[in-house]
Amino acid sequence: MKSKPVLTILHRLAILAYVVFALFPLFWLLKVSVTPNDLLYSEGVRMWPSRTSFDHYAFVIAHSAFPTFFKNSLIVAGSTAVTVTILASLAGYALSRFNFKAKYWIVALMLITQMFPLVMLVAPIFKMLSPLGLTNSLTGLVIVYTAFNVPFATFLMQSFFDGIPKDLEEAAMIDGATQFVAFRQIILPLTLPGIAATLGFVFTAAWSELLFALMLISGNDSSTFPVGLLTFVSKFSVDFGQMMAAGVLALIPACLFFLLIQRYLVQGLTAGAVKG
């Protein structure tokens, strides 16, 4: 079927409009971060300042606690993403391939955990973590984030495993592979897109989480970066330039991370396995 040129143009325009709409806040973030303080309020609304400077970046890196926040966030988001992905791929595989007694109830329970607004859970979780010495600690945050992300990540991984034909494992079993070898050598390589998606999803969720980080952590030493951003808000003023510079810097790891995994996110890895 040949598409009409007008439709194609409209289609492209719609995509362009969406991309501009989605990326504009990021552009604004970048713009404010390079605007010198004296021009911030004096130039009115402009798409780009008449003069740019990287002073905010220099200050954030050299004179604020931002590097600590950054490091904390990296540790928390990284450990959460890896832990959740390992747990979720094992659990997702089990849900996809095995039939066991309490399967229905486990799935139901996992769904129920997703129903409550997180705010409701802040107090009880604080109560539980406090006597264990896990408040004000990165370990505590990783545990909480892992607990919250495992159910959804499990369902995500399960759907990826469901997409892999069972014939492949049976062929591997006839070839002499144990269930575990079949999982490691056949299934896992084919689930890389799923694993990449789960890693990315959990990493960004943990990277930008504010509520629990704010409630469970006090003091700069173990603050993560979303909490740290609040330190740019003082009683009498907000230092927008530095805040935006910190924000841009915080985007870098997430971008790098997705650059790293994007080749696995491309579908079509299973093409040719079975007649589709």
């Binding site: 034909p165 014939d167 492949l168 049976e170 062929a171 591997a172 006839i174 056949i186 390589p189 084919l190 890895l269 299973t270 093409a271 040719g272 396995a273 079975v274 007649k275």
Partner: peptide, 14 residues
């Protein structure tokens, strides 16, 4: 001591 050929081929795609 058996080998099986599947309807779907079941080749390892990677």
């Amino acid at each position: 001591g058996i080998a099986m050929v599947f309807q779907s081929y079941a080749l390892y795609p990677h």
